Amino acid sequence: GTVKVQGITIKVPNPDKAYKIAKKLAKKYNLTVTRKGNTIKVE
């Protein structure tokens, strides 16, 4: 899958794990995490 952070896309082998990490970071930096299948977008 991929993770998008402010325009940066990161390929990740485990979208579930990445999503959990993204959620933690999002809370810390007051961002929104959206997930569509293997693509995770943080904005």
Rank of each mutant, 00 (worst) to 15 (best):
T2I: 13
K36A: 10
T2M: 12
T39A: 08
T32D: 02
G1S: 07
Y19S: 05
N38T: 05
I8L: 11
G37R: 02
N30T: 01
N14W: 12
K36H: 12
A22I: 15
A26Y: 05
I40Q: 01
V3F: 03
T34E: 05
N14P: 14
D16S: 06
T9Y: 08
I40V: 06
G7T: 08
Y29F: 10
R35Y: 03
T34Y: 02
A18R: 01
K41M: 14
V33W: 00
E43K: 10
V5G: 05
V42A: 02
G7P: 05
D16R: 07
R35H: 03
V12E: 01
K11H: 13
T2Y: 14
K20G: 07
A18M: 10
K11R: 13
T9R: 06
A22E: 00
I10P: 01
Y19V: 05
N38G: 06
K24G: 11
E43C: 15
N38S: 05
T2R: 09
K17C: 15
K11G: 08
I8C: 15
K17I: 14
P13H: 11
V3P: 05
K27P: 09
R35P: 00
I10H: 04
T32K: 14
P15V: 15
V42D: 00
K17E: 13
G1P: 08
I21A: 07
V3G: 06
I8G: 02
A22K: 00
K27T: 06
K23N: 05
P15I: 15
T2F: 15
I8K: 07
K23E: 12
K11P: 09
L31A: 04
K11C: 15
T34F: 02
K4T: 14
K41A: 10
V42H: 02
E43A: 09
N30E: 05
V33F: 00
K27V: 06
V33D: 00
D16M: 08
T32L: 10
T2V: 13
K36R: 13
K41W: 15
I40M: 02
T9P: 04
N30A: 04
P15D: 03
T2A: 07
N38Y: 00
T32S: 11
L31M: 08
G1F: 10
L25Q: 01
T34C: 14
V12N: 02
K27S: 07
K28A: 10
A18Q: 01
L25I: 09
I8Y: 04
K41V: 15
K20N: 12
I21P: 00
Y29E: 04
N38K: 04
G1E: 06
P15K: 07
V5P: 04
K23L: 14
A26K: 05
Y19W: 12
A26Q: 03
K41H: 12
G1K: 05
K20S: 09
I40D: 01
P15E: 01
I10D: 01
K27M: 09
G37I: 02
G7N: 07
T32M: 08
V3C: 15
A26R: 08
R35G: 01
I8A: 04
E43Q: 12
E43F: 13
V42S: 01
I8S: 03
K24S: 12
A18G: 02
K4F: 13
K24L: 12
Y29T: 03
K27L: 09
K17R: 09
T34L: 01
V12D: 02
K4Q: 14
P15N: 06
A22W: 15
N30D: 07
V42N: 04
N14D: 13
N38C: 14
K41Y: 15
T39S: 09
N30H: 13
K36G: 02
N38V: 03
G1L: 11
P15T: 12
K27G: 08
I40L: 04
K36N: 11
K36V: 14
I21H: 03
I8R: 08
V12P: 05
K20A: 13
K24P: 00
I40K: 01
N30V: 03
T39I: 12
L31E: 04
E43N: 06
V12H: 06
K20V: 11
I10K: 03
I8E: 02
V3D: 03
K20Y: 10
V33P: 00
K17D: 11
Y29N: 04
T39G: 02
R35S: 03
A22P: 01
T39L: 11
I21D: 04
N30C: 15
V3T: 04
I40W: 07
Q6A: 15
I8V: 11
T9H: 09
L25F: 07
T34S: 08
A18V: 10
I40Y: 04
G1N: 05
T39H: 09
V3H: 06
V12Y: 06
N14K: 02
G37V: 01
Q6L: 15
G7L: 09
T39V: 13
K27N: 09
K36E: 14
I21Q: 05
K36L: 11
T39R: 05
T32G: 02
E43R: 10
K28C: 14
T34V: 08
V5W: 15
A18Y: 11
P13A: 14
E43S: 12
Q6P: 06
N14G: 03
A22F: 14
P15C: 15
K23A: 08
G7D: 06
P13V: 11
T2N: 07
K24W: 14
K24C: 15
K20C: 15
K36F: 11
N30K: 07
Q6Y: 13
V5A: 05
E43H: 10
L25E: 00
G1V: 10
G37W: 00
L31Y: 04
K17F: 14
T39D: 11
Y29W: 08
T9L: 10
T9V: 11
K27A: 10
Q6G: 15
K24M: 12
V5S: 05
L31N: 04
K20F: 08
D16A: 06
K36Y: 08
K4D: 10
Y19P: 01
V33K: 00
V42C: 13
K11V: 12
K24N: 08
V5R: 07
V5C: 15
L25Y: 08
V5I: 14
I40E: 01
K23Q: 12
R35I: 09
V33A: 03
G37A: 04
K11E: 11
